[in-house]
Design a protein around this nucleic acid. Sequence first.
RNA 1: GCGCCCGUAGCUCAGUCGGAUAGAGCACCAGAUUCCUAAUCUGGGGGCCGCAGGUUCGAAUCCUGCCGGGCGCGCCA
Length: 579
Amino acid sequence: MKSIVAQHLQDALAGMPELADAVGDLSIESTVERTRDASHGDFASNIAMRLAKPAGKNPRELAAMFVEKIAGSDQVDKVDIAGPGFINFHLSAAAFHAEILSILSKGTEYGRQAHKDKPRILLEFVSANPTGPLHVGHGRHAAFGATVGNLLQAAGYTVSREYYVNDAGRQMDILGVSVWLRWLESKGTLIPFPEAGYRGDYIRDIASEIDTTGIEPVDAEELLGAIPEGDKEVVIEALITRAKTTLGATDFDRIRQQSLESIRADIEDDLAEFGVTFDRWYSEQSLTTGHRIEAALAVLEERGMLYKKDGATWFRATDFGDEKDRVVIRENGAKTYFASDIAYHFDKRERGFDLLIDILGSDHHGYVARVRAGLEAMGYKAADLEVPLMQFVALYRDGKKMQMSTRSGEFDTLRQLRAEVGNDAARFFYVSRSNDQHLDFDLDIAKSESNDNPVYYIQYAHARIASVYRQLAERSLAWDTAQGHASLALLTEPQEKALATTLSRYPEIIELAANNRAPQHLVHYLRDLANDFHTYYNAHAFIVDDAKLRDARLTLIAAARTVIANGLELLGVSAPETM
RNA sequence: GCGCCCGUAGCUCAGUCGGAUAGAGCACCAGAUUCCUAAUCUGGGGGCCGCAGGUUCGAAUCCUGCCGGGCGCGCCA
């Protein structure tokens, strides 16, 4: 709808060639915005103020020139000048009627934009280490990433969702040892469990489920003798070494791989139940086995971006704005995690993605500069990597902040949260705040099935509309859609105008939310829309005796139902027919 | 110490490339249902947009400094 106004301005400009230089590359559409106050019309353009300086004229004078040139049309009732030089557009009722019919004819496609070839987007999110179940913080990443992905797709982009599985390195050894020790425990070999091991109950479950054919228990005293006194890191290191020698590399690897796959699969199930799915689970191990790390380092070497110092191989990250150079191959010959990450991001670009979006926890922000430096060093643009950082989640119960450490025994997994508040409320609350704001997740509000729960407020609007059509059938009436479409001019109540206006904003909200990777815009919009509907519902009966008016009102609320359903779909929240 | 993020109503937060009188929910106060779901609606009070400068026709928004909070500064992952 915004484009109607932009087009009128564009046409007017065509008749004022003397302004061409002043306009330059200014996007006309960017000057157009919704008015905050209905007395200012439907849309306002600040183009006269924007052009004032380059054109050397005062804003109101320029605005008058525009108004003079803006052609009349059946979509615009009135154009006037207000304040310091705003050009206000009052659109015609016919323009809103056309929009309502467009909503109904497009249905689930309403708000979706035409396909865009570029950029092809790779969206990586969650990527939690496969060492245990997802916690409530990961839930925010999952809901946010999934919704941003939906929004980008709705905005016309091709989006591929990826979960990077950190299935290599020392933490996998620690996982393997943890499972092995719990398995030994179940066979009667009791030793103190290492402090640095993974202590959750799920480790015992894995130990009881995996295939341990051919693996022999070890004597407790013998094992204890191999454990040095001291630091927890020293202890766990000794146990890893011991596990590898006792079991042999093959059997230890068998335990390790089964353990990580068990956890990874559990995470995948958890997310799927949450409505969050990925196009690919990208294994870090595959970078090694596929020699992708060597390939990426070779590219850097070729470009002169690596050097040797103190027996290690360093990447010249400072050449690209990082604070210090970074080691990619350690003195002991092992490649660093950073080397894997360079290889992974290089691989993303090699697979043809133009824009890489990594959703990371804010505690990883120090990592962004070096990964971006890596991409730049390989010849890509810094802007091709975008990293929205997620701030932390705090759970509140009875107005008090909950402790979320595993040890405290209070709940902290995503599964427990979903079980307590439900998927709809969880998805909704997680994306209701900007990613760079800390999220205070109030369990009591999310659970409440009444009053102040915004999820139900929106869902209730949808259910109420569905209920109107059920009531219609009960009264043996039918919605004559053709007559409704033809009778929209009868909708003259202020609540009807307000609802139609809000409905017409939906495509703009999708674009805004997608472009800013900001799902909260959609959340706030849906609340506004539900509010407009509830207000209308309370002010006027829809099922009235006048058939034409009734059909027109049923047409309007059908459009509202469509937009609410479309918006909730993007959020991953259900749109119930009854509540 | 250095770097990144945040600071808006009592509380939780929106605020679009700088735009008109800074918005919403909760809480608080006063009302609305013989009628399609009251999980609803209507009205009301409540603001030094952390502080101080600067940029300009115009600043919550951009720049600088300061104050307060979070996070990060490994040949860990």
